[in-house]
């Protein structure tokens, strides 16, 4: 039986999530794994927006900020359960993306980049400045999700690290599954047509503006949920989560791994999340290495690491 790309990706991901802990030298690696999954979720959104619909955003960390602060604020001020706060954050992000997306998605290339950048900076500015609500740059505590305690009561006792590893792993699997379903749907095909040529897509009757907006909203929801998971996991969040560098990080992860494919983007998330952990001995050289990797991959593996390598393998096989 031949696996479709979709089931191959999901199966590989599930196997990695389930089996990787067998090879962990210490329980610390659960933490790294959980971070990779959280970042993986955010970059899956970037794949939909940038890889498939061909639109750039340098402001998606703003949505992660909304998701994160929803989890910090909604339980305290609205009495919502943290899980409800995740949904509320996603809803706010979606509405905001819909409102902002309509005007800015008319822009192209660098102009879209600066517009989305402005949007992200505005969100992070509000989080920094509205001290009475967000407690400002020093950050704010986030309530406990409570699920780990519930599992323990039900007889499944996981350490904090283990719990978040598997919880975020499952969330990523779900996110990847939804994205891959979208890829194979009529909307997904229309999106890719749009990436090929906007004008061509328009001439065959695709509602280009609506489609771009859909991709923008969906990717905002992914970023928002990833921000929520980060906040719940750390039980503490600062406005850095919405900062420009976090936006750049998301795009870089996706593009390095391969922005056209979910598997590639998640691989990119893994590499860039691991990099600072691997380079601690050379912490002084971390930025040099990161910069070099970014430039070299973009020059020599233009589609990103995973698609370029897959192509080489396929090429050799034929």
């Amino acid at each position: 039986m031949r696996l479709t790309q979709k089931s191959a990706t999901l199966l590989a991901l599930a196997v990695i999530v389930a089996l990787a802990p067998l090879f962990f030298p210490s329980s610390f690696y659960y933490r790294v794994g959980a971070l990779i999954f959280v970042n993986g979720l955010a970059v899956t959104g970037i794949v939909i927006l940038t890889g498939w619909a061909g639109q750039i955003s340098l402001g998606h960390a703003g949505f992660a900020g909304i998701g994160a602060y929803a989890c910090a604020l909604a339980p305290v001020h609205l009495g919502l359960h943290p899980a409800g706060a995740v949904l509320l954050g996603a809803a706010i992000s979606a509405v905001l993306a819909w409102l902002v997306g309509r005007p800015i998605l008319r822009l192209k290339g660098y102009y879209l980049a600066v517009a989305s950048l402005g949007m992200g900076i505005l969100i992070s500015m509000v989080l920094n400045n509205e001290r009475d609500l967000t407690r400002g740059p020093d950050g704010i505590d986030v309530p406990d999700l409570g699920l780990r305690g519930a599992l323990k009561a039900a007889g499944l006792d996981l350490s904090n690290g283990q719990f978040w590893y598997f919880f975020c792993g499952i969330a990523l699997l779900l996110g990847a599954w939804l994205a891959l379903n979208l890829f194979n749907s009529p909307t997904g095909r229309a999106l890719r047509a749009l990436h090929g040529s906007e004008i061509a897509a328009r001439t065959v009757g695709i509602d280009v503006a609506r489609l771009k907006l859909q991709a923008f909203v969906i990717s905002a929801v992914y970023a928002s949920v990833s921000g929520s998971l980060l906040a719940l996991q750390n039980k503490f969040i600062t406005p850095d989560v919405a900062g420009f560098m976090h936006s750049v990080e998301m795009v870089t992860m996706a593009v390095l791994g391969g922005v056209g494919s979910v598997a590639g983007a998640i691989f990119g998330a893994a590499v860039l999340t691991l990099l600072p952990q691997v380079l601690t001995v050379f912490a002084e050289y971390e930025q040099l290495v990161l910069g070099t990797v970014m430039v070299l991959v973009m020059i020599f593996l233009r589609e990103g690491v995973v698609p370029s390598i897959l192509r080489k393998i396929r090429g050799a096989g034929e």
């Binding site: 795009v251 870089t252 593009v255 970014m294 973009m298």
Partner: peptide, 10 residues
């Protein structure tokens, strides 16, 4: 464009 953005940021 997105690759060039990454290259110059890199």
């Amino acid at each position: 464009v997105v690759s060039l953005v990454i290259i110059t940021i890199g």
